[in-house]
Amino acid sequence: MTTASITRAIWSLFRAVIVIGICFVILYPVFIKLSVAFMDEKDLYDSSVVYIPKNFTWQNFRVAWEGMDYTKTFVSTFTLSFLTSVIQLFACLLTAYGFARFKFPGKNLLFGCVILTLIVPPQIIMLPLFMHFRFFDFAGILEAVTGKPLNLIDTDAPFFLQAALTIGFKNGLYIYLLRQFFRGMPKELEEAAHVDGCNRFRTFLQIMLPSAVPMMVTVFLFGFVWQWTDSFFSGLYLPTKKVMASALSSLAASVSSSYSSSGGSLTFVSPGFTSMMNNTGVILIIVPLLVLYLISQKSFVEGIERSGIVG
């Protein structure tokens, strides 16, 4: 054995210990949630039960599924999250490319404005935003035509509008990331395309976008995940429509009320039951994200390998 191979063996052992340790730190709370989700309520009060449920049951999942109205909620949340994140991905790509590659008066000031949208906490502008979409109008045109402003509350339109105008949740971050990415790309390709008579927009679509795939997947994933679990904006714009966040936060209450209305004997909601419902609900919310995440993880790596040729 040479010294080099010994060093390599020690390093890979060290690496394995660290990687497994960190994975454990991350996954431990999820394991607890899973074990609680499969427990019967009396297991919670039994001190001889640690991690492995004594009375294994699917009951929690069945109840939580019904309580969240899961199938319907899934479809509406998926549509909302998917469309919002696709729209905002393209709006942010255009903006980021504009900032990365073109010189125009006031560029630094405008980019400062992008950062401003990121650091202004959304709590500051939530009341003005609500009023804006409750009485939505475009320069008085709608009022002149239909007689009254449009009420966009309880529709998906506010989300799409915010996404298309790049002022949605954390869009400043996406613009910043994509701009950094475009700035790091060599200019020669675009110059070559330009010399060959390709216009700016086509250069962007056909030359830049294919190599930006890893960043695009990343931004899409963030947008989707944050929209999927968002309770701030969905609480503001969708007071009655059910999405994942609102379904989860009202899960325990709705389950116990449906029990008592169907003649059940559940008059007192125990904290253990509430907690079990919450844990099961969180798992139900995470699973679709996990699936999406594992799929895009693959294309993420593929995209990166393709960009290696360009970079």
Binding site: L94, T95, G98, F99, F102, F104, L165, F204
Partner: peptide, 11 residues
């Protein structure tokens, strides 16, 4: 500059 402004139009 004009195409720059067009690209950042959404923002």
């Amino acid at each position: 500059a004009l195409s720059g402004y067009l690209f950042i139009l959404p923002f």
